[in-house]
Design a protein around this nucleic acid. Structure first.
Lengths: 205, 205
DNA sequence: AGGAGTATATCTACTAGTAGGTTAAAGTCA
DNA sequence: TGACTTTAACCTACTAGTAGATATACTCCT
């Protein structure tokens, strides 16, 4: 342990919470919400369970905070994409790259993982989870609609529905790929999602 | 309980195991492998945990048996499809209907659920799980390849890769749809998967 | 036909370990 | 001093799994 006893400077308060979330997030993304415990996090952080309970009184609150932060960071990434390009195809490629970076860290999307455990989640986590998916679908639908209008993308039906199936396809590709420990499975599926949306459907693979 | 003590006729042995698997399967598909316990199953079956351990000594063995049976039943369903039609598009529609019936029972695909928990599963379950996905991909790839050759389906790249992305898209669509308790989300995504493969891409959705 | 023996199936009662969570005391620092 | 943070020690509930008793039924032997 780096410091065995006592308080840290108040400026460090944020940092401690962040580090707890960092470790809990890694656990949650690899093992699921029901697959890790306060004891697991405490061990990795070299602190006691009680200390964790000080910052996050209940596991439900910890889980809710995990989704909230994940959502926030993701939203910032989407804004960054919007600020970097106006081309729909490029936006989608960068969107997929976000998922790909998760896979490269040997993780599953936090919210995809939690979606599987949905029936066992406390209500606050469920609500927070849907907000994440809603935001993803909203952003995707806007990109798809703009891309179609600009002639950059081609697909049929409402953009909202397309957005949902794109999101589902990416989450599902991660899900299965992880059972094979093979990120290429995800990448291959992701590429097909993009190809299916592009006007010039010509890539041989 | 109908009979509190003692043995049942040997013919009942199979039936008891089946009933245990039935209940455990329902639990696993709704709550995940880490989301239910022997106690949960025992309560629903009106028997004791010890009785369950008699039939399935460890939870790992119970889980393995769950996947094995699920795989077997699924394989039979695929054979039934093969025996009923030779048209690739029709086969795919019936394949999707298998997933849809799972959703209609308010469940997630057993193996999709377990895939999320992959990192926490005992080795025998992991192996059994991959066999299920392998079999699905193999069947799908054959249908896709045949359908393309017959001019019934249109897609680019290796059929095997397409099969994987179709499987992933369906699993992912279930995953997310469950968070909204809305089977139509799955149905809409599934329809798009089929449309993307059909030669006459014309449905307005 | 009547046991004896064996296999099946279940029970009660228990173990060791882990889950999330609480308490009271104490350390640390502005 | 007083707010903040951490700790040791504990609690209750639950986890998978085990031990041993017991009830039933089938089979084989006399």
């Amino acid at each position: 342990m780096t410091a065995k006893k006592g308080a840290r400077p108040p400026a460090a308060q944020v940092s401690v919470k962040q580090r707890i979330l960092d470790v809990a997030e890694q656990c949650a993304q690899t093992r699921g919400f029901n697959g890790f415990s306060y004891a697991d996090v405490a061990e990795k952080l070299l602190c006691t369970k009680a200390s964790l309970h000080y910052h996050f009184p209940s596991k439900a609150e910890l889980g809710r905070a995990l989704i909230e932060r994940y959502h926030r960071v993701f939203e910032q990434a989407l804004e960054a994409i919007d600020g970097r390009t106006n081309e729909a195809g490029e936006k989608l490629r960068r969107y997929v790259a976000l998922y790909d970076s998760v896979m490269r860290n040997d993780r599953m999307c936090l919210c995809g993982m939690f979606a599987a455990e949905y029936a066992t989640l406390p209500a606050p986590m469920r609500d927070e989870l849907r907000l994440f998916f809603d935001a993803n679908e909203k952003w995707l639908a806007a990109v798809l609609e703009d891309g179609r209008r600009a002639g950059e993308l081609a697909f049929r039906g409402p953009a909202k529905q397309r957005a949902r199936s794109v999101l589902g396809a990416l989450e599902g590709a991660m899900l299965v790929a992880r059972a094979y420990g093979d990120g290429r499975r995800f990448q291959s599926a992701a590429k097909q999602v993009l190809t299916d949306l592009s006007v010039e459907r010509a890539q041989p693979s």
